[in-house]
């Protein structure tokens, strides 16, 4: 199976939209070859603006462009977009409710060799805490492409979390992404795994391991972390009675926290979280880091069994 990074789908889709979407303007902070906004720049240089290495100015300039009717995508690595420019996103973009998408690539530890300074594991938490912010972490190239197309027409601020690493296609060919809706990839009865981003492929692998042991695990892709598909989360938790979340993010503040908040108030069931265990990343090959930080099918499967044992 061909693997494609969500950032590649992002750049390709922007380039496809360039011809038909005249309101589209794309900004980048000297990382266009990595974030793949270079694909857009090639076909539409007049609406691509390189900001230089100045992320705070990039986000705030995007607010100005949106003020005169542009739909703006701005890109950098997640740590510099959501991290360095957090307050600009909060005050200049989200507070006035401007239609700006912060499309942040290189999220999570699978940035790899660059190490902890470049590995954002807090960005979902930061973005999720901003009032009215939409937060989306697509699982594969198909979903990323559809998210980009929807966000190009979206009239609100949004954070799109993209990865560096090529990932498997996990969504069905006829899939149609809807902002705010999760998708049941596999139904089950003993436990449900809610995952986002590249952890969806790991969750699917975990479900296969569990099936071999006679455990029926449902897998749900929660691409939109905010607004969370609360109805689906509650329904699946009630159906299965045990919950595991899986994300390439700190276990504090991300998908696991969002799911726990909903379940604690509506349907408390045994729950385990898979994610980076509140520590910084490090240099290494992405695959090595996934093992080191416990983001593997084996760890997910073990957590599923632990949750089931607490029923």
């Amino acid at each position: 199976m061909t693997k494609i990074a969500t950032r590649d789908a992002y750049g390709r889709t922007l380039a496809e939209l360039a011809a038909t979407d005249e309101k589209l303007v794309v900004l980048d902070a000297d990382l266009s070859k990595s974030t793949k906004t270079c694909d857009f720049a090639k076909v539409c240089p007049e609406r691509f603006v390189n900001m230089g290495i100045a992320e705070q100015n990039m986000i705030t300039t995007a607010a100005g462009l949106a003020t005169v009717g542009k739909h703006v995508f701005c890109s950098s690595f997640a740590i510099f977009a959501a991290g360095r420019a957090y307050e600009q996103i909060r005050n200049a973009v989200a507070y006035p409710g401007l239609p700006v998408t912060i499309a942040a690539t290189h999220a999570g530890i699978t940035v790899g060799e660059d190490g902890a300074t470049h590995q954002a594991i807090e960005d979902i938490a930061l973005m999720r805490a901003i009032p009215g912010m939409t937060v989306i972490a697509p699982a594969d190239a198909l979903e990323a492409e559809q998210a980009v197309r929807l966000l190009a027409e979206y009239d609100k601020p949004a954070y799109l979390r993209l990865g560096r690493l090529a990932v498997e296609s996990v969504m069905p060919e006829d899939y149609q992404f809807t902002i705010g809706k999760g998708h049941v990839l596999q139904d089950g009865t003993d436990a449900v795994i809610f995952a986002c981003g590249l952890m969806v492929q790991e969750a699917m692998a975990a479900a296969r391991l569990l099936a071999d042991e006679g455990v029926s695990a449902a897998v749900v892709n929660i691409a939109t972390i905010k607004p969370l598909d609360e109805e689906l989360v509650i329904k699946m938790a009630k159906q299965c009675g045990a919950v595991v979340t899986a994300e390439e993010h700190n276990i504090i503040g991300g998908l696991g926290s969002a799911v726990a908040e909903v379940l604690a108030e509506n349907c408390p069931v045994p729950m385990q979280r898979v994610g980076v265990a509140d520590r910084f990343g490090q240099s290494g090959k992405p695959a090595e880091l996934m093992v080191e930080y416990g983001l593997t099918p084996e760890v997910i499967a073990a957590k599923v069994k632990a949750a089931i044992a607490r029923k």
Binding site: V25, E46, R47, V49, Q56, N57, T60, T61, A62, A63, G64, L65, A66, T67, V68, G69, K70, E87, Q88, N91, A92, Y95, P96, G97
Partner: peptide, 30 residues
Amino acid sequence: STKCPGVDVSTGSLGQGVSVACGIAKGLKI
């Protein structure tokens, strides 16, 4: 901006207004 008529841009956090003005100016140029 979302509350007061005539206010084009929400401000208050210092150092950001020139950036927003740049975005507006660039958008108008485009």
